[in-house]
């Protein structure tokens, strides 16, 4: 092994950069841990209580035996699924219309496009859960409000995704429709939509996937569906049934992920 100074300057510079980066990272993590007053080794030291809780209180999952309880849980799963599908679909349709005005290359008012995108970015950066809290505070709880919260957050996300899909579209096909004398709605229907449909559907399926997970969480804070059912069992210290519900939610998420994953793969071909 040749001595260090035989190494090219670029290699030594890279080593210094890595050393600096990891040193700084260690310092930041130490500061953050001190800030949250949490010792990462505590989980192993006092871990007993945690593991006992999981193995004694949660395990094994139990299907509730009382009349109508299981039906209520399955209905909750159904509501959650319905909330996710309905909100993603309504959001996709609205997002398509809004996204037409969010892309400079497509919008008939290109100067307003950054404004539309900015508004979408603002709404998107507020998580669905926070929207749910804001809406529950003003409109009361229920699946309807949960639906609105999910629709808002997916709408903002999809506007951005759809606008970027349209930006990637080559300008050439649109120029020819403009030259033909086609109106804006005609250019959208005959140029943009056929060219971008695959991309739109792929983003819609992704947003459906995200909404399944989000709707369970939004449900817990008052949006109804399986989240609310789960929360009520946890509050009643009925952890075995709660665990059964958690497994059901996981199964639903995995099933939907698998399905949308397959569909998106088909679309990419």
């Amino acid at each position: 092994m040749p001595p260090d100074r035989a190494l090219p300057e670029a290699v030594r510079a890279e080593r210094r950069a890595y050393a600096l980066f990891f040193g700084a990272l260690l310092l930041v993590v130490a500061l953050c841990t001190w800030g949250v007053a949490f010792n990462p080794f505590e989980l192993f030291g006092k871990g007993d209580a945690f593991w006992t809780f999981l193995s004694e209180d949660f395990w094994p999952p139990r299907i509730p035996q009382r009349e109508g309880r299981l039906e209520a849980i399955l209905a909750g799963i159904g509501v959650t699924f319905a909330m996710a599908v309905a909100s993603a679909t309504v959001a996709a349709v609205l997002a398509f219309l809004v996204a037409l005005f969010a892309s400079e290359r497509v919008s008939p008012f290109p100067r307003l496009a950054p404004l539309v995108r900015g508004a979408a970015t603002f709404v998107r950066n507020i998580p669905a859960l926070v929207w749910a809290f804001i809406l529950f505070s003003s409109l009361g709880i229920g699946t309807g409000v949960g639906f609105v919260a999910l629709t808002l957050s997916s709408l903002a996300f999809l506007v951005r995704a759809f606008a970027e899909t349209m930006e990637d579209l080559s300008q050439d096909g649109l120029e020819s429709l403009l030259a033909i004398g086609a109106t804006f709605p005609q250019r959208v229907a005959h140029g943009i939509l056929p060219s971008c449909l695959g991309g739109f559907v792929s983003w819609y399926l992704y947003s459906l996937e995200v909404n399944i997970r989000a709707s369970a969480v939004v449900g817990m804070v008052g949006g109804g569906g399986i989240g609310l059912v789960l929360f009520s069992y946890i509050k009643a210290f009925n952890y075995h049934v709660a665990f059964f519900i958690i497994l059901l939610i996981a199964a639903l998420v995995i099933a939907v992920d698998w399905m949308t994953g397959r569909l998106r793969k088909e679309l990419a071909l």
Partner: peptide, 22 residues
Amino acid sequence: DLRAQRRKVGMVFQNYNLVHRL
């Protein structure tokens, strides 16, 4: 009026400018 005038002009492009998926 502008669109009506554009109708009278057929345009052929170097990159063909077709909608490829149709």
